[in-house]
Structures are given as C-alpha cells and as structure tokens.
C-alpha cells in the first residue's frame, strides 16, 4: 500500500496524498454508508417500536453489521469496476483507480468486513438477517455490477440491494419479515428510481463513456428517464400508504406521506415534461429530502400516538 501511495505522490498531476483512513472512507462511500446504517437501524426500530436506550443500541448494532457487509459489497464493486471507473469524471478519483490502494489489500479488507458483519448478525441476531445480507451482497457484486454493462435492466436489479438494508434491519430485530418490512422495502425500492433517473440523466455522457447501459444513455431514449421517474414516483404513494392499511401507522403518517408524495411527484412530472439540467437537479434535491423525511415520519408518528 505504501508503494501505491508513493506512486500517487510521485504523480505531479495527481491530488494530495490521502492517508489510509481517508482511503477507506472513500472506499466505503461514507454518505451511502450513513444512509445504509440509518435505514437498517430504522427498520430494526420499526420492528420493535421500543424507545428504550437498550433497544436503540440493539438497532444501531444491527445497522452496524449491515453497514459492514454493504461496505464489503461497495469495495468489491470498486475492485471489479476499477478500469471503467477511471473513464468517468465522477469516479476517477476513487482510491482503486488512482492506485492509492492495491487490489489485494482492498479485497482482503472487504472480506474481513463482510465476515465480521455476517458473523455479527448470526451470533447477535438471527440466521434470516444473515442470509438476507449475504443475498444482498451476491446480487450487488455478482449480478448488478456486471449487468451495468449489459442492459438497462440493471437499474431495477440495483434497486433491490439498495432497498435491502431496511428489510435486513427489520428481520434482524423481528426474526421475520412482516408486512411492514415489505412495505418499507417497497417504499425505498420505488424511491430510488426517480433519484437514479435524475443522476443518470445528469451524468449520462459520463456513463456512456464508461460503457454503462443506463436508461438515458441508450440511443433514442429522450424522455424515457422522465417517464420512468414519473411512473415510480406515482407508485410510491400506494406503497407508502401500506403501513396504514395494516394499522401500523396513524393519521399523521398518512397526511405526511401524501404531502411528501406530492413533493416527489411534482418535480418528477416536470422532469418528464422537459428533461433539462435544472429539472433533473430539482428532482434530485426532492429525492434527497424525501427519504429522510419519510423515515422521520415513520419515527414520529408512533411516538405522537404514544406507542
């Protein structure tokens, strides 16, 4: 690894050298990792609904194990894609591209993380969550990553591991996947499409350079990204109302979910009407607000009802 760092230092055009912590933070994609941790912990909390400190710690523990395994998936994905990542502006500064870390050390670190997370789930929680987390890893690294270069269907496949953390967190604490677990999974699954369509559209030239098959990179695809975004943002309304159907959410949740749905649908429709940079940015912004707000709502509603 020190050899790799020196190479980066020696490269006059290269960036300032990063320490090993910064490199691993980059490899684990901290912003994504934070989201994974929060959604998994929230899934766990919704399975228990106990605001006690001991239970919150349990949920955080489950979130940490999920985070370790998804971190493993993230590193392995960057190992596989290190050559195409070099072609995209968005990813060409990743440590495996710049050579700041070698493939062997990255894989070794990833395996260690993956084993720690999986064993943690098995010993501290249950088999179901461990199986789910490994399935997520396999889908992400062995199906989604190679599929990116084959078909635009990768967006749908990639949305499964994207939505999985909340389901795993729920399964870890509940020991089963109830209707609420599936509803949460469905909501995050649908949420990703407008979010990704906005990103894929904004970076479509970048993706095309790397040979990634995204909806907006396909020839003759004008308007398709917008239509996908609109369709999935509409589907998020019935999906987010599902917890209310089974009596697991109250009026505050219903009103909030509907208002948030409108907040997401309006920019999606605008993006579908006109695929422009400003509309894509607005949709991306709405998507970033939407998910934390929905999670906050799921947390606030039972507390307000005194559950």
């Amino acid at each position: 690894m020190s050899d790799a760092v020196q190479r980066a230092v020696g490269d006059a055009a290269g960036p300032a050298p990063r320490g090993p912590i910064a490199i691993w933070m980059e490899l684990l994609r901290m912003r994504v990792a934070t989201m994974v941790f929060l959604t998994a912990a929230l899934g766990g909390w919704l399975a228990t609904r106990d605001p006690g400190l001991a239970n919150l710690a349990r949920c955080a523990e489950a979130g940490l194990y999920v985070l370790l395994v998804t971190g493993c998936a993230s590193v392995l994905n960057q190992v596989v894609e290190r050559e195409t990542d070099a072609l995209m502006d968005r990813t060409r500064m990743r440590p495996l591209v710049t050579g700041e870390i070698g493939v062997v050390s990255a894989v070794a670190g990833a395996v260690l993380l993956g084993v720690l997370g999986t064993v943690g789930l098995v010993l501290s929680f249950n088999m179901l969550s461990a199986v789910l987390v490994l399935a997520t890893l396999v889908v992400y690294v062995c199906v989604y990553t190679p599929l990116k270069r084959v078909s635009t269907i990768n967006t749908v496949v990639g949305a499964v591991p994207g939505a999985a953390p909340v389901l795993i967190g729920y399964a870890a604490l509940a020991g089963e996947i109830g209707p609420l677990g599936w509803a949460l999974f469905g909501a995050i699954f649908a949420w990703q499409f407008p979010h990704f369509m906005a990103i894929a559209w904004m970076y479509r030239e970048d993706y095309a350079k790397a040979g990634h098959r995204m909806v907006p990179t396909e020839p003759g695809s004008e308007g398709m990204a917008g239509r996908y975004a609109m369709l999935y943002s509409l589907s998020i309304v019935p999906v987010t109302l599902m917890p209310a159907l089974s009596g697991m959410a109250g009026p505050i949740y219903v009103l909030g979910a509907l208002a948030l749905g409108a907040l997401y649908i309006v920019p999606s429709i605008q993006f579908a009407r006109e695929e422009s940079y400003s509309n894509a940015r607005r949709l991306l912004f709405a998507s970033i607000i939407y998910l934390p707000a929905l999670m906050a709502l799921l947390f606030v509603d039972p507390v307000m009802r005194g559950l």
Partner: peptide
Amino acid sequence: DAVWFVLLGLLYVLR
C-alpha cells in the same frame, strides 16, 4: 383529485 387522495388515505386506508 389531490383532495381525494387525502380522503382515501384517512378514511379508507387507515385502520
């Protein structure tokens, strides 16, 4: 239409 969605959520869906 939008108002109906609120009614649907509160009166029909919510239990």
